[in-house]
Amino acid sequence: MFTIDQYAYTNRLRVIHPGEKMAFALITLLIALIAPNLVIPAIIIFLMAGITIGVARIPVRFYLKLFLVPFSFLIAGIAMIALIITTQSLAVTKGITFLGWTIGVTPASIQLAGKIFCKSLGAVSCLYFLSLTTPMTEIISVLRKLHVPALLVDLISLNYRFIFVLLSTVDDIYTAQASRLGYVSLRTSYYSLGHLAVNLFIKTYKRSRELFVALTSRGYNEELKFLEVNYPFSWLFLFLAAGLDLALISLTIISWR
């Protein structure tokens, strides 16, 4: 979490207009989702990984580790899709038959599973590109420019800020407990963890009151106003991104026929 955020602020593509990066990531994501076969999503995975690692200079090891997060969910999910349980022993089914029930796979189910696997990872690679190259503050500012309802954007931006406040509060309480042997055994761990949760709730509540007071004293009037920063447009990035997406779209159209 912290590391993703740090890379978002320090990567080599930071200077590119956030709107361009968002458009590129989302359009590519859409292509990955509507593509009829698994080749196009597979190309997208390599493309996005290539840009994120090669151009934005996100370390390979960190990037691969990040990919492992959805991987385990994905494996469990597609295993269920690939496996078929049936009473009709079809010729194409490869599997074990037991008491008239066959559990196994068919070429069609494997292909479907493969397609979903590639599409999911393709989509993930697009989102990782966005979250590793674009700071949340800039994404929020693009959302605001796109006239996403102010209430929603305010909530997103406050949430983003408070994730860090909350995490540091958790960290402080945990350290204070651990230094007094609060996590020395399983029993004390449960006890301490319970108190941490309660305390966190109280502290968060107190903090939100303090924040409200501080905002009021600076003239808060039920709307968080922000100064919009103008980011320079990068024609080169726009041109390359559009080119790549157009190529992917043509590939998609060709494979539909």
Partner: peptide
């Protein structure tokens, strides 16, 4: 308790 935004400028 004062800082509500993640961006210094904002």
């Amino acid at each position: 308790s004062m800082l509500f935004s993640a961006s210094v400028l904002q």
